[in-house]
């Protein structure tokens, strides 16, 4: 696999030609905000938070789906990108019904983290207050669509990792919602194995475990890395820790 060298924010970095700009940035300690991306899932380039500039190219590209080219010069944090990222988070904040103070993942929410990261002080757009539904028909979990940012991580983990494909998107434009099976109550969705993977990958409090109260739920997403690695290597038992 050829190794390419190029510049990121003026520093020389290197990476394999099949790695994404996002992966290479992370290996070099350069932070690029993301939302739809999650290690272990396919990338869809949907949230547009990871957009970066490439010198000599008009179009911005999503770092999570772009491969490097020898000698290119990438900028990940220009004033323009910062402005666009703030607007994206602003748009998200106006789109759903996000009441952080009463949310199970308050303080452990990736949308909140993003809002802090882009220093969102106020939202210039009117709140849309969409009519959205809450589905508590599943025995263990709840889907509160009011808090959904439509990142589709739940859909992808269910399809790609669990293999159940319980979730999908219904509707289009701002009528998009995440639906279970044939748009039916989650509790009646025959394909759902109740594995809970969707709950763990959800960046917000849209998917959560029953029995949790405000600010109680922290989501651990490491499991995904182990499953995906094991699937690739065919080794399902953790290697013994070396030494000690």
């Amino acid at each position: 696999m050829p190794i390419l060298t190029f510049a990121m924010n003026g520093h020389q970095v290197s990476g394999h030609d099949d790695e994404t700009l996002l992966q290479i940035a992370r290996q070099h300690g350069i932070h690029i905000p993301t939302l739809c991306h999650l290690d272990g899932l396919s990338d869809i380039g949907a949230c547009r938070l990871c957009l970066v500039e490439i010198e000599g190219q008009d179009k911005l590209v999503a770092a999570c789906v772009t491969k490097p080219q020898e000698g290119m010069s990438v900028h990940t944090d220009t004033e323009r990108l910062q402005r666009y990222r703030r607007t994206i988070v602003e748009l998200l904040a106006s789109e759903g019904n996000h009441q952080c103070a009463v949310c199970v993942v308050n303080e452990h929410c990736q949308l909140q983290d993003l809002a802090y990261a882009v220093e969102l002080q106020y939202v210039r757009f009117p709140y849309l207050y969409p009519k959205r539904t809450l589905d508590a028909t599943h025995k263990d979990f709840v889907m509160d669509r009011n808090r959904c940012v439509l990142c589709s991580r739940c859909i992808r983990v269910c399809h790609e990792v669990e293999g159940a494909h319980t979730w999908d998107t219904a509707g289009r434009s701002f009528h998009c919602t995440i639906m279970a099976d044939m748009d039916q109550p989650w509790g009646t969705a025959a394909s759902c194995t109740s594995c809970g993977k969707c709950v763990w990958v959800c960046p917000t409090g849209a998917l959560f475990e029953k029995g949790q109260t405000v600010a109680e739920m922290e989501k651990h997403r490491d499991f995904l890395k182990y499953i995906v690695t094991a699937r690739r290597t065919g080794e399902w038992i953790a290697e013994e820790e070396e030494g000690e």
């Binding site: 869809i44 509707g171 289009r172």
Partner: peptide
């Protein structure tokens, strides 16, 4: 709008 990406959808 298909609703996939945030800038277009919202």
């Amino acid at each position: 709008s298909c609703g996939k990406c945030i800038p277009c959808r919202v």
